[in-house]
Design a protein around this nucleic acid. Structure first.
Length: 766
DNA sequence: CAGTGAGCGAGCTTCCGCTTGACTT
């Protein structure tokens, strides 16, 4: 028998590699891992040295059957899974499952998909590294032990179907702790002094120089006093300092930095970034999108340099290789870059074009020269105080990489990038046009976005490129956190303006605390987090992963036995598990807020069976206590007595309309008006259920009726054909049915509708 | 879809990492 079979992890990779290798090589893919721990009995024989019980998941059976068949047809099998812990384990599982002997099996690795790299790999085969495989098994088993022993505690002590894990629980913890920092943050205000100064050059041209006092003032009296000094001071340019500086480009994209920039520049949620990148990868446009490496292949560096020189000139080219600094990086792949750097644009959907352009620019910029800049600081001295005004300016002397790409930051800086330096000279005297003291409040630390959370996780070494997006989804799906917008609140800020020698005080409104697409912890996330940190402090510590990674590395180096390592971890861990199960009470986070003045009854909030609720009255009394769900955005931790009491004012009857009651309440989908058994949602941010009037409610009912009229395309008794968000559909006895493509909703007959309905019902059953 | 909060109990839920479809909306 002759012939060669190469097995890689990804089918797109298989296709590319097949082109580089000759006819004697068939290249196939394992689609990632082919085996996993059984879900029965935790999938580990704990008493027998943590022996894993591996099974082939149903969705992988077809893949494995195909691989088995192919492997029987050749004489040599090349295991070309990635060069990292997981890849080594995949290679080992393949040997086991396909029953491959050592003498027909060769393990090869390459970090880049180039002909040279692959040929070099083929010429340097090795055997499977069992130490590395064992490090992976330790990782896998530990994650299973943590996840499958702790999650059931949550089902018992908190709520069913919850989950805990080494990675997801720390992600939630980051959000909960940040939220608490924000809750306890006390804004402090100070007065910032900004001045507009007029200068006149020797040839008579006038201009404006904006500057800020080098000191802030704690209260308005101090600020006012300073402005009085300003009103009688002589101003003079006392110093001009010019400092050269340079800016270097950011390294090429990794998964994490791509997610961050795609969020900041294109507004993509991390899952969308990965879906679009996957498309680009599959169509051969970019290299692999799940990577922690900033490395570029030599070929990519060379062709990029060529392109930069021909496009922008020699001065702009500066080839460089970036070191990956990320904790725990395994660098099995290249950085994310265009496959063909010469291609600056691709076809396809708009999002693909935009993401590709981002990747292209970032890659090009990473190989370009630094930008040379000049930072100028102008000091304006005052004759009657030592506190100067300062003006900063930045001039780009050579744009370098900035010609194509500028990295965004999470904070929308208000200090504009570059400002022209006015032509002032040292010693020049100035007069003020206007000087303003403005009250500024300090701001709490920012809430996380999906992308900034990924960044933080990467810094802590928690999670891998392939799991960032899924973890972000999991913590939202479990209800631990929610991504949403918040309208801010208004506050008054004070101003003092000096103009033409006169001081004028005033106030104005400022919006603060508005959030867009930020992650907020929900009550259940807070409760679970507190429970986990209380009972498993060391495991959900931010540094737990980093610490065990050191041990995994020792296993990989053959210095530590993986079962010994697990033994050491498991013994105290399991004792904690049983203790926690035996000891702790159910966790409901109940808080007594005080008493309702009208009824004299106590008011509580807690996590109920169906979510956070407020309770009025004690359970033991003759009367049943009243319950009311908390509103969106309210937390058990922060709700006040007054807010909780307000919840019991709903539902309330507004009056009658068309001889039926109009009731306003709040339900699962927010505030609503009920009339004649029909529900009408209150308009967001316009009406609120506590203050809405009968007139406004009637308006809402009539408005909705009008809207619904426009939605109806046709009706046959109970069958109604409607216009919906996803196109026309049939509504029949409270069920909706999709109209098949091609059918004209206007000309559908009653029989045709019935057919669609029956078909839909059959589908549901099966 | 707009409610629910008595209590019991069977049977289910769950992890992290590696990879893509096959689904429906």
């Amino acid at each position: 028998m002759s012939g060669n079979l190469v097995i890689v992890e990804s089918p797109a990779k298989a296709k590319t590699i097949e082109k580089f290798l000759g006819k004697d090589f068939k290249v196939v893919s394992s689609f990632g891992h082919i085996r996993d721990l059984s879900k029965k009995n935790i999938g580990i024989d704990i008493k027998n040295g943590f022996t894993p019980e591996y099974i082939i998941p149903d969705e992988k059976k077809k893949v494995v059957a195909g691989l088995r068949k192919s492997s029987r047809e050749v004489s040599t099998i090349w295991l070309a899974s990635d060069e990292d812990r997981e890849g080594e384990a995949i290679a080992w599982h393949l040997m086991k499952v396909l029953d491959l002997s050592d003498d027909v099996t060769k393990r090869i690795v390459f970090h880049e998909i180039t002909k040279e790299a692959i040929e070099a790999a083929i010429n340097n085969p090795r055997s499977v590294n069992m130490d590395l495989v064992n490090a992976q098994q330790a990782r896998r088993v530990l994650d299973r032990l943590v996840g499958f022993e702790i999650s059931p505690i949550l089902w018992k002590k908190v709520q069913p179907a919850l989950s805990a894990g080494r990675v997801q629980s720390v992600a939630v913890r980051l959000l909960v702790e940040r939220e608490r920092e924000i809750i306890s943050f006390l804004p402090v205000s100070s007065f910032r002094i900004q001045g507009d100064f007029i200068f006149r050059t020797s040839n008579g041209t006038e201009g404006l120089l904006k500057a800020e006092a080098s000191q802030k003032f704690n209260d308005n009296n101090d600020g006012e006093e300073f402005l009085r000094l300003c009103s009688s001071a002589l101003f003079r340019v006392s110093d001009i300092v010019v400092k050269p500086g340079s800016k270097s480009p950011a390294p090429p994209f990794t998964t994490s930095t791509l997610q961050q920039e795609a969020y900041r520049k294109l507004g993509f949620p991390v899952a969308q970034t990965m879906a679009v990148a996957q498309k680009l990868y599959e169509s051969g446009r970019i290299t692999y999108m799940r990577t922690d490496s900033t490395n570029l292949s030599q070929m990519a560096i060379n062709t990029t340099a060529k392109l930069i020189i021909s496009e922008f000139g020699d001065k702009y080219s500066r080839p460089r290789q970036y070191k990956t600094r990320t904790k725990g990086a395994q660098e099995a792949h290249e950085a994310i870059r265009p496959t063909y750097i010469e291609t600056s644009e691709v076809g396809g959907a708009g999002n693909e074009k935009r993401l590709y352009e981002l990747i292209w620019k970032r890659t090009i910029a990473s190989q370009m020269s630094n930008a040379e800049i000049e930072r100028t600081t102008i000091t304006i001295g005052m004759s009657n105080t030592s506190i100067p005004f300062l003006a900063h300016g930045e001039v780009i002397k050579f744009d370098g990489f900035l010609k194509v790409y500028r990295e965004s930051t999470d904070t929308n800086g208000e200090n504009g990038d570059s400002s022209l330096i006015p032509p002032v000279t040292r010693g020049m005297s100035l007069s003020y046009d206007m000087i303003t003291a403005t009250e500024k409040y300090t701001t709490p630390p920012p809430r996380y976005t999906e992308a900034s959370l990924v960044k933080r996780m990467e810094e802590l070494g928690i999670g891998r490129p392939s799991t960032y997006a899924p973890v972000i989804s999991t913590i939202q799906n479990r209800g631990y956190v929610v991504k949403e917008n918040r309208t801010g609140e208004k506050r008054r800020i004070r101003l003092i303006v000096l103009k033409e020698g006169a001081l004028k005080r005033s106030e104005k409104n400022e919006l603060f605390g508005a959030e867009k697409s930020k992650l907020f912890p929900k009550d259940i996330g807070i409760i679970v987090n507190d429970f986990l940190v209380e009972n498993f402090k060391d495991i959900f510590d931010y540094h737990f992963t980093a610490n065990i990674e050191i041990q995994f590395d020792e296993i990989a180096d053959g210095k530590l036995s993986w079962s010994d390592m697990l033994e050491k971890f498991y013994e105290p861990f399991h004792i904690r598990v049983t203790d926690t199960l035996n000891k702790s009470e159910r966790k409901t986070a109940e808080r007594k807020l005080g008493y309702d003045q009208n009824t004299g009854k106590p008011v509580y909030v807690k996590m109920g069976k169906f979510g956070p609720v407020a309770r009025l009255g004690d359970v033991s009394e003759d009367e049943k206590p009243k319950f009311a769900s908390l509103l969106k955005g309210q937390l058990i931790e922060t709700i006040t007595l007054d807010e909780a009491i307000a919840l019991f004012r709903l539902p309330r009857t507004l009056g009658e309309f068309e001889n039926r009651e109009l009731v306003v309440g709040t339900g699962r989908f927010g505030p609503y008006v009920r009339h004649d058994d029909k529900f009408y949602s209150l308009k967001k941010d316009i009406d609120d259920p506590y203050s809405i009037t009968l007139e406004k409610a009637i308006e809402l009912v009539l408005g909705k009726r009008e809207e619904d009229k426009n939605k109806v395309i046709n009706t046959f008794g109970e069958i109604v054909i409607l216009k919906g968000r996803y196109g026309p559909y049939i509504s029949y006895r409270k069920n909706n049915y999709k109209i098949p493509r091609g059918a004209d909703p206007l000309s559908l007959t009653e029989e045709e509708c019935m057919k669609i309905i029956e078909k839909g019902n059959n589908k549901k059953k099966s």
